[in-house]
């Protein structure tokens, strides 16, 4: 669940200011955010994940007020509660696919890399159809397979909130469809909230709600 209230954010360098009067994403809700490039959609996701904090207002994710936490606690929170899918996958080229999926467990001590975590990583890979690619390096995978591996990484710690920033931007139509199906499927299966930033209007039909970002920041309202 995400709740933003009277939010003002601007980067230190200036030049951009994001204002959101109110945005709420319910538990288990699947929301698409659409809007023009450079309007601040990615910043919205960063605020929801606690990667950045607003200068004013509240951001509450999974009942935790992120703006009240220090950087270390927000990192821990992200590791445990947020799964983030990037447009350009951001897999580490020096790790094999399995280690990429297990990455959150290796970089945050609040997550314990045990047999169950490994089993879940393998199980997720099996579900998205890349189980046979686990020993390979990302460079040896197709783009669709890489994004599926990135989705597995985002889901492996059973996050309550899945954030995806144009996850299909680099994929062909077939892979687009497949990746979105996986995201919806996993969000439903885990009861996680799903927020996807996308330009692709063809994908919107599967979401419960679509937020027009321009309206959100302009009228300070979310739209259904």
């Amino acid at each position: 669940m995400v709740r933003m209230q009277d939010l003002v954010f601007r980067y230190r360098e200036g030049g951009f200011e994001l204002r959101v009067e109110s945005l709420r994403v319910g538990r288990g809700e699947r929301v698409a955010v659409v809007g023009p490039s450079g309007s601040g959609k990615t910043t919205l996701l960063h605020l929801a994940a606690g990667i950045v904090v607003p200068q004013h207002g509240r951001v509450e994710t999974n009942a935790t007020e992120l703006s009240a936490l220090d950087d270390g606690r927000r990192r821990d929170f992200r590791a445990r509660h947020v799964g983030y899918v990037f447009q350009s996958f951001e897999l580490l080229g020096y790790l094999d696919v399995l280690d990429n999926i297990l990455l959150p467990f290796r970089v945050n001590p609040t997550l314990s890399l045990d047999a169950a975590a490994r089993e879940r990583a393998v199980s997720l890979a099996r579900r998205v159809g890349i189980a046979d690619k686990l020993p390979r390096r990302p460079g040896q995978l197709s783009q669709g397979e890489q994004q599926r591996a990135a989705v597995c990484r985002a889901l492996v710690a059973r996050p309550g909130l899945i954030l995806a920033d144009e996850p299909t931007g680099n994929l062909d139509a077939k892979n687009k469809q497949r990746v979105m199906e996986i995201l919806h499927e996993q969000a439903l299966a885990e009861g996680a909230s799903l927020v996807v930033v996308t330009h692709d209007l063809d994908l919107l039909q599967d979401f419960e709600r679509v937020v027009d970002f321009q309206e959100l920041v302009g009228s300070q309202e979310s739209v259904s």
């Binding site: 990192r75 590791a79 951001e90 580490l92 990455l103 959150p104 970089v107 990484r153």
Partner: peptide, 20 residues
């Protein structure tokens, strides 16, 4: 740098990034 940014976004602790 890009790797560090990715790790930060997925919740890597500062200590982990430093050790890495």
């Amino acid at each position: 740098r890009r790797e560090v940014r990715t790790l930060t976004m997925i919740g890597a602790s500062r200590a982990s990034v430093f050790v890495l």
